[in-house]
Write a protein that binds this DNA or RNA. Structure first.
Length: 560
RNA sequence: UGGGGGAUCGUUCAAUGGUAGGACCGCAGACUCUGAAUCUGCUUAUCUAGGUUCGAAUCCUAGUCCCCCAACCA
């Protein structure tokens, strides 16, 4: 099925062919199978959009299944956050919420069945011994001395493993395949290990837990999954996936298909590393707006639509790539451009005094929330004698092509009026701390009746009516384009960008923003898109900069 | 010295033997009460070498480079 760009990807092609040819009875059933050992990130979003997307395109189903087979690393907090994030992204698993742990009893039965077939055995080798017996890429493995135990003996031992007769790690149940296989995954892989660990759902019912390879293929089969989509590193596991299901001649055979995981410039998407950032306090939790987690992007102000569009555009392929984070930024700008209300806020204030506007006088001006969409309405903005403008919008000695305010220059205040800068006030160090200007009352609203043009339009906030706000600016978390590629062997955390967070404690925003609800998204005109943060307190809103507007002036000036 | 994958503009995804195209980025211009948005234009690619073919990114042969695999993790 072609997407909006008119092309389909290889998984789409496969599923389409299967649906047409009647394979799997023409059914399409996918699943998103996260392990609840961390928060979801943008890489998971790619997988979620793929799995739920394919199901929706071919009127099939997509299950949410927690792959919770390793209680030592998993937690209910992660389960909850994952459900919240998938829902927020806009997907619905309806009644199909599953857990691999739901299948522990059935999986146990499958394991017993494998033992009966003499395809699995209980092995007493220690971890070190197992790895020694496994051999390596160039050397075949050797059979475990316990490989030839009888079926009865294996049945007995496995049952005793389950009831807790043996110490953690003392034995494993292993598949009996081929210790000489060139595919390391086929060298009698462990199916169960003994591990006394409290499980967030099954509690202490079990002291043996199934391994991924064994649990995953059967979980897919139990659920009638038709297309089991996973990332490239599981390619070598496909042989094992198929082997398990083939042994018991399971009536339903899901097909595993691998695709390249997402990699993004200037970010890490390894759960281990993200966890480390959180636990070491290098970031402020999983939802720190600098984190590439779904919750981080949400708090940063990204929309579900923008992330879905991003996932659509990056496509699905089998080669490893590194997506430019600029594409994600483009996706959020594109989504917010028509939606976000335009408002004014000054991040780095410079005082302007309109000498011909008497103190106490208020000129109320009407300003649309979106100049291209009148349906969004408008608000009244007060113009008063004292104002704040952006430091950046004034230069005592303006460079070429600088359209903004400078001594003697006239500019427009957005939706306000034309003002002319007459006089500078400096502090003892010679720093300009105030501009004394005059406004042209005839230009009220923004245009002069005589038709004269000004090149610059500035955003501004009334000093007497403006609301003090904290604004947080974010930059990329890592300095290098590919922080995961730490070839020099150093600590990957050395690549962190020390300037990824900049807090501006004293900014001024227009009065309409005083009570902005957390999560509210705005465009601060000429600056960027901002999102009201939950840290706001009454009378003191906090805004996160989602993404800056493109700034061709800054670019041009930097080139000089 | 093993096995499994992959190589197309700067990046990414297409083209499924028949004009190498889109998106992002970049550059230039138009427009503009946001130096935004929008619009227009431009630059740049088939890993290498042979072969098959009227015709090859696509098929064949031989290389080269890159990624993954030796957790009782997933």
């Amino acid at each position: 099925m072609a997407n909006e760009t008119g092309s389909s990807h290889f998984i789409d092609d496969i599923i389409q062919d299967d649906a047409r040819s009647g394979k799997h009875g023409g059914r399409v059933a996918t699943r998103f199978p996260p392990e609840p050992n961390g928060y979801l990130h943008i890489g998971h979003a790619k997988s979620i959009c793929l799995n739920f997307g394919m199901a929706s395109t071919y009127t099939g189903t997509c299950n949410l299944r927690f792959d919770d087979t390793n209680p030592a690393k998993e937690d209910i907090e992660y389960v909850d956050s994952i459900m919240e994030d998938v829902r927020w992204l806009g997907f619905d698993w309806e009644q199909r919420l599953f857990y691999a742990s739901d299948y522990f009893e059935r999986l146990y039965e499958q394991a017993v069945a494998l033992i009966r077939l003499d395809k699995a055995y209980v092995c007493d080798l220690t971890g070190d011994q197992v790895s020694e017996f496994r051999g390596n890429f160039h050397k075949p493995g050797r059979n475990s001395p316990f490989r030839d135990r009888t079926v009865d003996e294996n049945l007995d031992l496995f049952a005793r493993m389950r009831v807790g007769e043996f110490a953690d790690g003392a034995r494993t149940l292993r598949a009996k395949i081929d210790m000489a296989s060139p595919n390391m995954n086929m060298r009698d892989p462990p199916m169960y290990r003994i591990k006394r660990s409290h499980h967030h759902r099954t509690g202490d019912t079990w002291c043996i837990y199934p391994m991924y390879d064994f649990a995953h293929c059967f979980s897919d089969a139990f659920e009638g999954i038709t297309h089991s989509l996973c990332t490239l590193e599981f390619e070598d596991h496909r042989a094992l996936y198929d082997w398990f299901l083939a042994q018991v001649e399971f009536p339903h055979r899901p097909q595993q298909i691998e695709f390249a995981r997402l990699a993004l410039t200037y970010t890490v998407l390894s759960k281990r590393k993200l966890l480390e950032l959180v636990t070491t306090g290098l970031v402020d939790g999983w939802d720190d707006p600098r984190m590439p987690t779904i919750s981080g992007y949400r708090r940063r102000g990204y929309t579900p639509e923008s992330i879905r569009n991003f996932a659509e555009r990056i496509g699905v392929a089998r080669r490893d790539g590194l997506i430019d984070v600029a594409l994600l930024e483009h996706a959020i700008r594109e989504d917010l451009e028509p939606k976000a209300a335009r408002v004014m806020g000054v991040l780095d204030p410079l005082k302007v005094v309109l000498t011909n506007l008497p103190e106490g006088e208020i000129v109320w001006l009407d300003a649309p929330f979106h100049p291209e969409n009148p349906e969004m309405g408008s608000r009244r903005v007060p113009l008063t004698r004292e104002l704040w403008i952006e430091q950046d919008d004034f230069r005592e000695e303006p460079p070429k092509k600088f359209f903004r305010l400078a001594p003697g220059r006239e500019v427009r205040l957005r939706y306000g009026c034309l003002i002319t800068c007459n006089e500078l006030v400096k502090d003892a160090d010679g720093k300009v701390i105030e501009l004394r200007c005059t406004w042209d009352p005839d230009s009220k609203g923004g245009n002069a009746p005589d038709g004269r043009k000004v090149k610059g339009t500035l955003h501004w906030v009334s000093a007497s009516h403006g609301v003090q706000a904290e604004v947080r600016l974010y930059d990329r978390l890592f300095r290098s384009e590919n922080p995961a590629d730490d070839k020099d062997g150093g600590d990957w955390k050395n690549g962190l960008n020390p300037e990824s967070l900049q807090v501006l404690p004293v900014c001024y925003v227009e009065p309409s923003l005083a009570d902005a609800a957390p999560g509210g998204r705005f465009q601060f005109e000429r600056l960027g898109y901002f999102c009201a943060d939950k840290d706001a307190r009454p009378g003191k809103p906090v805004f996160n900069r989602t993404v800056a507007l493109r700034d061709s002036w800054a670019k041009a000036e930097a080139k000089e």
